[in-house]
Design a protein around this nucleic acid. Structure first.
Lengths: 285, 285
DNA sequence: CCGTCGGATACCTGCCGGGTATCACAGCGA
DNA sequence: TCGCTGTGATACCCGGCAGGTATCCGACGG
């Protein structure tokens, strides 16, 4: 009943993700045999079969699926411990604020201005990330605080403060028939011939079905839009990256998006609290 | 920038708690020199001083305090991964439900009856623990679900469902003047000569000031009450352990206590969901 | 029936975790 | 002042285990 080491969890996660010992070993930078041994030792120690070894790879058992999910949060927690400790050691560490590139641009701008104007506030470093990455960065300690969006982001385990609620708009090429409309509905917009609606990831990271492209990165998205290959439904404030050849049409029945400031509920640093206060003050004004 | 291993975190936690390398080493079952080395390697790797070595022991730095807090949650997460995986491997694992010994006795009884009557429900194993221990057991995976009490327990990071709200009563010896009252106030009860009010731990585990005894274990509490050495303010339902020589007097202005069923928000097992549904059904009936 | 692919096994090696002995240093008491 | 004690650090050694290479075994495809 010896204790589980993080190395073993990292190894298991690699195998569980690759479902192939050889590839997992390569990814980990070790040879395949030690990896096989480590996994079977882990199985033995837990008294549970984690993988069904099939002749063309490996498949997760139920217990394996549980361990995969749990390992990710455990590894994030360990990484967070290291990150936050490193930061606590540096006397004038900046707070790291993470947000999806391009979203809530104006709000972010005002927040940074407010912080800059406040001589007592800790400096803030802005980290821009891809769709759905904020939660990960908060969980593993690379970021202290995030701007996130309800209901599209996963807010479990975080404390949040609502900052701003807004409707969504459809981004369509100027010459498209829909461009002249005052407003549209989701139904109208979701089945436009030749202009499939972009598919954003759900809370769990999976994608809804449909003909449009799956959105993974901001740059990919920008290019798709620039090429006129997809129709986009986004919060009005994300119009910061919009091009002259597109127009935004309000989508009346799309769910409202609330921008929130989020931080790990375990954390209770005065710097974070002060930043949250500054952000909340922006909302009131 | 190699990764942090759980062993190192366990070692650090031991030193941080003992504030003494020798004692920490003894507790860990290793010799002192390897422990010193492990800690200084950890400090070097994190690039941060964790402890100020003084001639009469060690003291935590700010960074050390951060790492202590973070290490505990990380170690709990790792332990939870192991526990939950082991349980997932056993096909007919019982759900482990933890509650403070003595609290919400009647509700627990009804819940267990309901589960026993439902042939489709997973079996439930009851684990009784001391004051404030439930959160720990949920976090490190030794328990799946808990009966907890708002606002006295720490519910951060858990999903909860309210089951029952009730007032609190003061437990006083029958021959005491207060025993004949219909109701009392906190002010009356908090300064009774010769019968100091018992002090429960706060959310963070610290204790309020006062003359009364600090409550750590249920057996200690039972004995103090039986001896007539302390005056107790508890939820009405905790009267399950009450003796004939005491009476319960409602305390009109004490905060109401809500019994909740709580489970780690990361978990989404059908067995837990079903148990929560059973508990919620009790509330409605 | 052979070649290939994927994982397991056998066996070796070097590193690192852990042990013992000892040091360095600061109080402290006689 | 000088040991003495209690503390953590250093020096050094040893054994086990992580990790490497070579090889095997079973299953498929041709």
């Amino acid at each position: 009943m010896t204790d589980v080491e993080t190395r073993e969890l990292r190894y298991f996660v690699a195998v569980a993700e690759e479902l192939h010992f050889g590839r997992a070993a390569a990814r980990l930078g070790i040879a395949q045999p030690p990896l096989s041994r480590a996994i079977s030792r882990l199985e033995h120690r837990l008294g549970v079969r984690l993988l069904d070894r099939d002749r063309r790879g490996a498949a997760l058992t139920d217990a394996g699926r549980v361990l995969l999910r749990e390992s990710r949060v455990a590894l994030d927690a360990v990484a967070a411990a290291a990150h936050r400790t490193r930061r606590a050691g540096n006397p004038d560490r900046p707070l790291v604020l993470v947000t999806k590139a391009g979203a809530s641009h104006e709000l972010l701008q005002r927040l940074l201005d407010a912080v800059a104007d406040d001589p007592g506030a800790a400096p803030v470093e802005v980290l821009l990330c891809e769709v759905g990455e904020q939660a990960r960065l908060l969980r593993d300690g690379r970021a202290d605080v995030a701007l996130m969006h309800r209901p599209v982001d996963d807010l479990a385990g975080f404390d949040t403060e609502d900052l701003h609620t807004e409707g969504q708009v459809a981004i369509v090429p100027t010459r498209h028939p829909l461009a002249s409309r005052d407003q549209v509905t989701l139904a109208e917009v979701s089945d436009v011939p030749g202009l499939p609606i972009a598919r954003w990831p759900r809370l769990d990271g999976s994608y809804p079905d449909g003909p449009g492209p799956e959105i993974h990165t901001q740059s990919q998205l920008a290019q798709l839009v620039a090429l006129g290959r997809t129709l986009l439904v986004i919060p009005a404030s994300s119009r910061a990256w919009q091009w002259p050849e597109h127009v935004a049409v309000p989508v009346v029945d799309a769910p409202a998006i609330t921008t929130v400031i989020a931080w790990p509920s375990s954390i209770s640093s005065p710097e974070v609290a002060s930043l949250v206060r500054s952000a909340a003050a922006l909302r009131d004004s």
